[in-house]
Amino acid sequence: MTTLATIADDTLTVSAGAFAVVITAKSIENNFDAVTHFPERRARLSLADLCNSLNYFGGRLDKLAAEGGAVDVATEAARFAERHIALHRRAWAMEARCMSWFIVGPANFPTARNQKRQGSRDKAYDAIRAHSEAALKTIERTAWPHGAPGDAIRANHPDAISLIRAKIEQHRAVHAQMKTANAVLRETKGQELGARITAMAGATGFKRETCERIVNPPQSWMGQGFGSHALSGQLAEIKRLEGRLATLEANAARGTVETQHNTTVGALTVRENPDAARVQLIFPGKPDEATRSLLKSHGFRWAPSEGAWQRHLNNAGRYAVSRVLSALQTDNEAA
């Protein structure tokens, strides 16, 4: 396991890739002097929390690497540790500006000013939590840019079409097995339980334990075999996947398509990018706040890696483009 931090003798030692630092409880103790009677205890707890956060992140990196994810453990560990520690130092500095009247006394206590400082401190700790959550999501996306194994098949996966075809065939096979199982139940009605289970296993390829549950359900209310809802559910999933497949194949056949439009915010390029499975809007510069709000209201999000505002490439995405163009249209629209 990748251990990014250890604590010994009230000292936190961090070694994360190319980043290393040592923090003693004594060095941060003064940040808590005005908020607690036991600043040394608060300092030790703060270092322990930081240590746990760093090592949890290291554990996540290990897990992704072990699963085959494309992640540079040392680089990601160093990036996270450096930023996370900086955020903790900032929060501790904010803490040093706060005070408790239990500690400093109630006379002339600056209540309003202290509340404002506490608000800033709370935001600093919120930033720490937000960084942890964002960093975990980032390494997941880095490790599995097209989705982790077992996740839904993303449209921008380079093998999306073949994977969806395989998924359709898998559901068709399951549906056929379910129908075969129901047929065996009808054909073997009245026979001895063991014979029915054996017949079920031979006809469907299910494991014997599965066949036993189908023929002799553990609960009477479950009923034998597969109900119409289960069969129709498989058919509905097949139909949904076939729809996705048709859309992806059509987009791939069209290839990348670009059109230019004159708008109130300048020349706008609309690109249908099947490789990224996105419809993209490319502006000559950063759109103003009103235009950005318009884009967001129609489901577009800024993608720095693409230099474009984009959403999924499908009929809904194309319709959203038409709505944005309509809102930004000029009298001289270029084809």
Score class of each variant (00 low, 15 high):
residue 129 R to L: 10
residue 323 R to M: 15
residue 333 E to H: 10
residue 102 F to H: 15
residue 296 K to T: 12
residue 38 F to T: 10
residue 64 L to A: 05
residue 6 T to G: 03
residue 161 I to P: 02
residue 78 A to V: 08
residue 266 G to R: 02
residue 155 A to K: 04
residue 226 F to N: 00
residue 152 A to V: 10
residue 113 R to C: 11
residue 334 A to F: 12
residue 17 G to Q: 05
residue 245 L to V: 00
residue 323 R to V: 13
residue 225 G to I: 01
residue 321 V to E: 11
residue 245 L to S: 00
residue 120 S to Q: 13
residue 70 A to G: 04
residue 6 T to L: 05
residue 246 A to E: 09
residue 118 Q to N: 14
residue 284 P to T: 00
residue 310 Q to V: 13
residue 315 N to W: 09
residue 128 I to A: 12
residue 92 W to D: 10
residue 82 E to H: 05
residue 58 G to R: 05
residue 328 L to M: 07
residue 121 R to Y: 15
residue 292 R to N: 00
residue 187 E to Q: 14
residue 331 D to Q: 15
residue 183 A to N: 03
residue 146 H to L: 02
residue 130 A to C: 08
residue 278 R to S: 03
residue 122 D to I: 15
residue 271 R to D: 00
residue 65 A to G: 02
residue 223 G to I: 01
residue 66 A to E: 14
residue 47 L to D: 02
residue 300 F to N: 02
residue 105 G to C: 10
residue 127 A to H: 13
residue 254 R to L: 15
residue 199 A to I: 01
residue 293 S to A: 14
residue 304 P to I: 02
residue 264 T to E: 11
residue 335 A to P: 10
residue 259 T to F: 01
residue 276 A to S: 03
residue 308 A to T: 08
residue 122 D to R: 15
residue 203 A to G: 04
residue 40 E to S: 14
residue 80 F to M: 02
residue 108 N to R: 13
residue 137 K to S: 11
residue 252 A to L: 07
residue 104 V to Y: 09
residue 334 A to R: 13
residue 147 G to M: 08
residue 114 N to I: 13
residue 328 L to T: 11
residue 178 M to Q: 14
residue 168 I to C: 01
residue 110 P to A: 10
residue 268 L to A: 04
residue 142 T to Y: 08
residue 157 H to W: 05
residue 113 R to P: 06
residue 278 R to M: 05
residue 75 T to M: 08
residue 263 T to W: 06
residue 49 D to H: 11
residue 70 A to H: 09
residue 121 R to I: 09
residue 163 L to S: 03
residue 122 D to H: 12
residue 77 A to I: 03
residue 50 L to T: 04
residue 61 L to N: 04
residue 55 N to A: 07
residue 60 R to G: 06
residue 129 R to C: 06
residue 312 H to I: 15
residue 324 V to N: 09
residue 56 Y to P: 02
residue 239 K to L: 06
residue 74 A to D: 13
residue 191 Q to C: 05
residue 285 G to Q: 03
residue 168 I to K: 03
residue 91 A to Q: 09
residue 278 R to L: 10
residue 332 N to K: 11
residue 106 P to C: 12
residue 233 G to R: 00
residue 132 S to F: 13
residue 148 A to D: 07
residue 149 P to W: 07
residue 229 H to A: 14
residue 99 M to N: 12
residue 333 E to S: 11
residue 303 A to Q: 13
residue 162 S to L: 04
residue 211 C to W: 00
